[in-house]
Nucleic acid binder design. Sequence first.
DNA 1: TTGCAATTGTAAGAAAACCGTAAGAATTTT
DNA 2: AAAATTCTTACGGTTTTCTTACAATTGCAA
Lengths: 232, 232
Amino acid sequence: MNECILVVDDDPEIVNAIAITLEREGYRVRRACDGLQAVEACLDPAVKLILIDVMMPKLDGLSALLRIREKRNLPVIVLSAKSEDTDKILGLSMGADDYVTKPYNPQELIARVRSQLRRYTSLGDVNAERRQGLLVNGRLTYDPAGRVLRADGDEVKLTPTETKIVDLLFRHPGQIFPAEEIYRRVWNEDAYSCENTVMVHIRRIREKIELNPKEPDYIKVVWGIGYKMEQH
Amino acid sequence: MNECILVVDDDPEIVNAIAITLEREGYRVRRACDGLQAVEACLDPAVKLILIDVMMPKLDGLSALLRIREKRNLPVIVLSAKSEDTDKILGLSMGADDYVTKPYNPQELIARVRSQLRRYTSLGDVNAERRQGLLVNGRLTYDPAGRVLRADGDEVKLTPTETKIVDLLFRHPGQIFPAEEIYRRVWNEDAYSCENTVMVHIRRIREKIELNPKEPDYIKVVWGIGYKMEQH
DNA sequence: TTGCAATTGTAAGAAAACCGTAAGAATTTT
DNA sequence: AAAATTCTTACGGTTTTCTTACAATTGCAA
């Protein structure tokens, strides 16, 4: 019952309100008001769950979430205002474990937190185990250690940039990445009018791994949101 | 639990931070701040595992790693800053057993250290056994003792310089060596605008061992990184 | 010592791989 | 139908590697 929960929102009042709700239930709470703080705060091993707003200034919730996921496989519950584009939020939040709209119902929030913690602590850090080793997805296998991608057993020759994109998508199957996010993570710089660049690289990768690049089975587009590696 | 771990990084603060993390888990720690010290320190048989930064001044982590590997077959975990070119690092670190990015997550670091030590002590020094003897790779066989290379059974006449390069690549199949690194290890002096020299020698070797030197099967180039001996 | 052949290094142009951009086509949504 | 989004292709510029020729050096033998 001594579990610590990280609450992230740019509005301090909301953070406070949530914190009070959680503390009344016996949880410890850490606060952060933007994505950068969140990434840092989550390194504290005491933190066992994260509640995060997706729509934030600076490093937004999605980017933060992805970065956090790289470091620790914590349960993440996404918050979002009801007014915000539900589709978009949902699309982006696929990496999250649950999803709560603001204004939230305290009872419901607690219930979901409890549920996630139970699931997580009973299951343990499953992904940590399978983090090593070959990733298999239909016709494709990817060896993250050697950065070698194979299609039907044959090695696919990828350029450095292509490799980085494949690596990103393969390590997060099913998760949707906006072109902007892909750019940030592959080029390590801020994205500015880069969508076309990413798109062309995606095209070239498809040419190498898809049977029919025009109707891709693996690197799929999610309209208005981004790209994802389809799981087979 | 009394195992000794060698930590190598040019930043003393990082060495310290890692050392504290490890010592809290009951490991003994030795420190080194550059590659030369690392090579020396690893001669101590108490050392059972090495944590090393790849990007270091003086003798960099890669060179040190290779030199260490020649002396002792220890598990090596490579450290690198996330900002550094991931492709390059990964390509160069293939000789390592594992790979951790800075800023590192202490939990994860410990887990990986434990995992490597477990694997190593249970498996024992397997590679030491097969280190001697004839190296066979597809059409090619290489006798490291007599320094004789054969292609389809016929001896390939190599010049002294060519022999040294072949020896290096054959002893580390699959591992990528930048031209710079090849120069350092074959000529035993610092590399400065040597890429062309190495390239020409590679060309001449290819002419002698490849069926089609323009599309080599054995000595392959890895774009933007270096050369490697492909395993068949 | 001298001369020859093998070896080695350098330079420079050619070729290849890679990357980003632009612009029009195609597709999906509204 | 209009707007937004994605696809597709082609091209130019850059980087990296390849290739070749030639000059310098070395080693060996006459």
